[in-house]
Amino acid sequence: MTAQERDEMAAEYVLGTLEARESDAARKLMARDAEFAQLVTDWEARLAPLLTLAAPEAPPPGLWARIEATLGDAQPARRVLRFSWRGFGLGASAVATGLAAFLVFRPPAAPPMMTVLLTSQDQSAFLVEAEHGQIRLAAVNPRGVEAGRVMQLWALPQGATAPTSLGLVPESGRLSVTPRGIRPAPGMLIEITLEPPGGSPTGRPTGPILFIGRLTAAGTS
C-alpha cells in the first residue's frame, strides 16, 4: 500500500464505511503497525466533533448491571445479601420497629429522572438528572456566556406559578443541588436563564430562557 492508500484506509475505517472484512483487516494492521494506528488516531481526532450531532439519550435502566455482570463482578451483590441475612438474625422486633419507622417516614419514592435542556434551535446543551431529591446538571457542550452575565438554574413544579431558583451555573457547567421546598418529579420544568452578575435580583427569572427541558423518568425519553 502507498502512503496515501494507508491514510485513506485509516480515514474510511474511522468514517465507518469499510465492510466487515476490510474493517477487521484495518484493526489487525493497527495492532501491529504503530504508524498506521497513529493515522487512525489522527482521523478520530479530526472527525470527533461530529459526535456532538448525535442527540444524547438515557440508556435503559438495567444496562449498567448487565455490563457489570459481563465483567464478572457479582461480588457487591453477594456482600449485600449476606449482610441482610445477618440483620434478620439480630432480632425480629428490632427489625420490625425499624421497618415500621421506615414505612412511616419514608418520603414518597421517585424513580430516577432526567432531561436534556435544549436551546431554542433544539440543540442539546445540558443534561439534568434527578434522584433522591437531588438535581444534577452537567454541560453537554460547555459554552461561555456573554461578559457581565451569568446563567441561573430554575425549577418549575407542575402546577406552580413561579419557578424556584436552584442557583447559579458555574463556568464548568456542573452543579448538584438538593432544593428545599420542592421535590423533583416527572413533568417538572427545568430551565436556565441569562441573569445579571450574582443572579436575578427579584427571585424570579428576569432574562431570556437559554435552555429548557422537562423531567421524565429515566429511560422513557
Binding site: G16, A54, L63
Partner: peptide, 15 residues
C-alpha cells in the same frame, strides 16, 4: 458510565 452513558447511548442510537 454515569458521566458518559447518556452521550454515548445517543451516539449508538444515531447509528
Amino acid at each position: 458510565y454515569k458521566l458518559q452513558s447518556v452521550r454515548l447511548f445517543g451516539v449508538a442510537m444515531a447509528i
